[in-house]
Nucleic acid binder design. Structure first.
Lengths: 139, 139
DNA sequence: TATTAATCTATTAAAACGATAGATTATATA
DNA sequence: TATATAATCTATCGTTTTAATAGATTAATA
């Protein structure tokens, strides 16, 4: 399951992705239109900015706007950022790898091998689907 | 990510699946061999019993043993039992469906549509992989 | 210089997770 | 029938994560 933060990020991105010419939109408008809690949304937008997906402008006429192309923002990327690893266990993750305490020999562990495969196949799905596809699916 | 409970369930099942003739094994032995916390493991084994995957016998010579065939125990089944939905959001889950509060019209929601597809594809993977495959992958 | 709007720091309530303790019930066998 | 064995049940508990809010600060514009 995705956290609410992750879900909110998708909603905010979808909204901004539909904005014409990527004109900056202020937080409160994004919050109103997407029905997301404003203060919580702030932290999300900030994270998206820090990772280079959004840009921002302070002061009058400011707000947040999309920098990356919607086709270049994959589900995997957003999920990793807000939800953590794609893999089902840390021992099967490439980006967030950590060994299991109870596991004597990982190279022997059938669960690990299986979850590595699952991760691989899941990633294929999540990398190929983008914000563009989400927006295209609307209406 | 899977919870530790889910991971422990897989380890316990893998151990029992490798047992010859499905002879009952006592909790403490399962715990020792798998290196899992015994008391926590108890609750897991009980759940597995209630769902018909394991059988148990009290008293001397008792313990837990596998009832279902390893080929008939899918990853999806275990994950659902201990970890919850396969879908990434409740609104995209069939077994645990729940609408989103912020969503005015689900039929219009691009995220929902996308996650329904993801769920479908993920399920294909997780249903086709079984305890048998995990055990086969060992050594 | 006043207004606007993002950014930063700090805090908090609630839920989920992981784990343990102790009492009870069922079964086998000596 | 008594005893040992082992699952089962009830209850509790600390920690971490999640979701959310409050308030002060900085930057940009007009």
């Amino acid at each position: 399951m995705l956290s609410k933060k992750t879900k909110y990020a998708f909603h905010a991105l979808t909204f901004l992705g539909k904005q014409p010419n990527n004109i900056p939109v202020v937080i409160s408008e994004i919050a109103n239109r997407t029905k997301l809690p404003k203060k919580f949304l702030e932290t999300i937008l900030l994270d998206l900015k820090k990772s280079g997906i959004l840009g921002s402008k302070m002061g009058k006429g400011g707000g947040y706007y999309l920098i990356k192309q919607t086709k270049d923002i994959s589900l995997a990327e957003i999920i990793r950022m807000f939800n953590g690893p794609i893999a089902l266990l840390p021992c099967a993750s490439l980006n967030y790898y950590e060994p299991c305490e109870e596991c004597e020999d990982e190279a022997q562990c059938g669960l690990n091998k299986m979850l590595l495969k699952v991760r691989e196949e899941t990633l294929k799905i999540l990398v190929n689907k983008t914000l563009f596809d989400i927006i295209s699916a609307e209406e």
